[in-house]
Nucleic acid binder design. Structure first.
Lengths: 213, 213
DNA sequence: AGGGATATAATACGAACGTATGAAGGGGGT
DNA sequence: ACCCCCTTCATACGTTCGTATTATATCCCT
């Protein structure tokens, strides 16, 4: 039997990787309790016992899924934060990167939300991801406050104001389409929405009113 | 048997109301699939068959729970929108009311999030609630744009920027406490956080820079 | 006071769940 | 060719699930 440090490696025999892929889709769609090991193995083309064999248990597979999905998020954001320009300009890039990554990995925010709204312990990697992302934004804000381009206020709270917008907007996508008539699957709508958020964030932070950008 | 228009009336025999109360708590905590009818009836002090009898099925009870929880939200918000003062002042009040209601009814945002991230159809009442709340905020923004106090931009998108903050911050409460060290259970922290959001929103909307409020 | 609707109770049923078990494949290394 | 280890497979076990069924209380109305 195997299922030891499977939260790291993920090439495996193909079966394990297929299980993670299938499980990511199903957990995202139906939640942990709503997804059966039979559904996962069927979708992965694997045997019913494959999850027990490779990951020890359903929970073990879930942990592996979370770890794999959360990993790249932090890197992408800190890359945007290390760019060129004034703090305000870089924050703008961070917001765009935030949206970009969430739009390309729509599973991630849904999974994170399920963890936050659920009752089981929030996985370590999720907490770290939140902490890092808030930290990145807050540190940019502090820089802007130091050079006078960003107004006063607790940088961490302001970072929450910023981060909440991409997260909620991507999580609520389905509800916004069906209930409010805003369809983020339409590229033009999405672009205008992102730019609206970017402008809102910039205006919410700036110490002085700004001419056109 | 009964279970007809039970989404409306809710006084009932006491048993039905107790079922709704117990179900609200358990659905919020563990989700729909994570909550068994046995757990609900046990907590409500009712017989196993009570859910079938009063609501027809587990899903019927869930619908009743959603309807009861979502109802008061819209009213509270539109009350704040009808207050005194400039559009910016009233928007400020709306944000405070938003937070106030979510803090007092912490089940509501978690339930709504579960619906948005889940796969089953989003209940009609939830979609209506989203629509109304966005509409209220957007209409205040339009007023402010008309009198020149609020800058240009799509009012509905700006409304999303505003609404996303109270919602996400209350839903993510547990994660923020455990992962970022921001504890909204502490009244002082909460107050400072809300005021930070209010200022952020005001700055994000205002057409002209403003002196102290 | 008695009868008919309304509510609660105890139990049964079939299906689906997560996991355990043991047997059957299937390639390298010697 | 052989063995051995890793993987896959088929199937069984015990639980728990949502709902149905049937019997017993409880209450209002004339």
């Amino acid at each position: 039997m195997n299922h030891s440090a499977h939260t790291q490696e993920l090439a495996h025999s193909g079966t394990a990787a297929a299980l993670v892929r299938a499980a990511l889709a199903l957990f995202t769609e139906h939640g942990y309790d709503g997804t059966s090991v039979r559904a996962i193995t069927r979708r992965a083309g694997a045997n019913l016992g494959a999850i027990t064999y490779h990951f020890g248990s359903k929970q073990g597979l879930y942990d592996a899924v979370i770890a794999q999905a959360s990993g790249p998020f932090r890197e992408q954001l800190s890359a945007a934060a290390d760019g060129e320009g004034s703090p305000l300009d870089r924050l703008q890039q961070v917001v765009r990167a935030f949206f970009g990554h969430l739009y390309e990995n729509p599973d991630l925010p849904r999974l994170m939300m399920q963890q936050l709204t659920g009752s089981r312990p929030i996985p370590e990697v999720t907490l770290r991801t939140m902490q890092t992302n808030i930290g990145i934004i807050a540190s940019l804000i502090r820089q802007g406050q130091a050079d006078g381009s960003i107004r006063d206020g607790d940088p961490r709270f302001m970072a929450l104001s910023i981060g909440s917008q991409p997260i909620w907007l991507t999580v609520a996508q389905r509800g916004l389409r069906e209930g409010v008539g805003i369809d983020q699957d339409d590229p033009e709508t999405r672009a205008r929405l992102v730019e609206s958020i970017v402008r809102f964030v910039r205006a919410g932070l700036a110490a002085h009113p700004e001419r056109a950008e």
